[in-house]
Simulated scan of single mutants.
Amino acid sequence: MTVDSLGARTDVPPGPKTPVGPVRFAVLGDSFSEGVGDRVAGAWRGWAPLLAEGLSAEGLSSAGPAAGARQTVLLNLAVGGALSRDVDEDQRPRAVAFRPHLASVVVGVNDTLRRTFDIGLLARRLDRVLTDLDAAGAVLLTACLPDPGRMLGLPPPLARPLARRQRSVNAVVHALSDRYDTVHLHLADDTWTENRALWSADRLHPGERGHRAVAAGFHRLLAARGLAHGPSPAPEPAQPPPTRAETLLWLATAGTGWVLRRSRDLLPQLLLLAGAELRHWADGTGTEPLDARADAALAAALTATMGR
């Protein structure tokens, strides 16, 4: 797989042209696709509407298909905190009923933050979502993401278990992206994670500049397939950056809420995982046994999913 500096695959062959009539674009996932980090007029916007504006020459329709024969009609089903189960059980049926020409599916980070994390279950759910959308005729958009432990700068015993989990999620996403020939953005490399300007204050969601970079990356690949006919999203933010007071208020309200929710769910499990890391380091085995266990679970998940 070949990627450019923003993580966009450059080895995808051209595909079918945009269909006549409104372009229906369904967005499935969690807060990354909901638009958290890019607030406009008091609401989250994010990369999906920015991309939708450039899919057709006439732009994004807010009133449905009647507003313009070649406009894009956007159905954003993404919800903050969504797990792969939510995307599979709740968002997938609604997206299929929408009969989208394009459908993005980006999910998995929240799964890594739960004590119930199961890479096999995630792989089966994601495969089911992509299978149904592919069967409905949609061109699929996917992305892999950085692990939250690295983004938050957690100490190694806490960060390593999350990194191990996110690597497994990304491996599943890569395998399924190849299977369904998706339009894929690789957003887990250093070019993305080390550019502080792309991220919002919480370090878990892109800011406006980051959402614009995601939209531009997808637009470039879709244009190569003949599926984007409008202008690429502008790279520079159009909104003034949040003031320090606004940032602190957001972190004190939404940010604190996130920490409290995760503390009840993930923290006890994460402390157990960190304890296992420290025990292996203390007895001289390092992380090899834990890495091997995660690799075995991933291999089983890929065999079960890709071997069907």
Rank of each mutant, 00 (worst) to 15 (best):
P22W: 00
R128V: 05
A159W: 10
D202F: 03
R39P: 05
A215D: 08
G217M: 11
N195C: 06
G307T: 13
V87L: 04
A234D: 14
A171H: 07
L248Q: 03
Q71E: 14
R85Q: 13
P156L: 12
H229P: 01
G46K: 01
D147C: 01
V40H: 12
E89Y: 11
A216W: 10
H211G: 05
L130C: 01
L227E: 06
S31W: 05
L154R: 11
F32H: 06
G226Y: 14
R70F: 07
D86W: 08
D147Q: 00
P93L: 08
T253V: 12
L198G: 02
R261V: 11
V109I: 14
R179H: 11
M306V: 13
V3K: 02
A143I: 09
L51D: 01
V73R: 00
M1G: 14
P93R: 10
I119M: 05
H186R: 14
P235R: 13
L113D: 06
T243L: 08
L126Q: 14
L55V: 11
W192G: 00
S33K: 07
L102F: 08
V20F: 05
L251F: 05
A223P: 06
L302P: 12
P13T: 12
L248T: 03
V96T: 12
P206W: 11
L248M: 03
H229C: 12
A201S: 10
G108T: 12
R244S: 06
A123S: 08
L278M: 12
L251E: 06
L272C: 04
P14V: 07
F98H: 15
W199P: 03
Q71L: 07
T142R: 12
R160V: 04
S61H: 15
T116V: 10
L74D: 03
G210K: 11
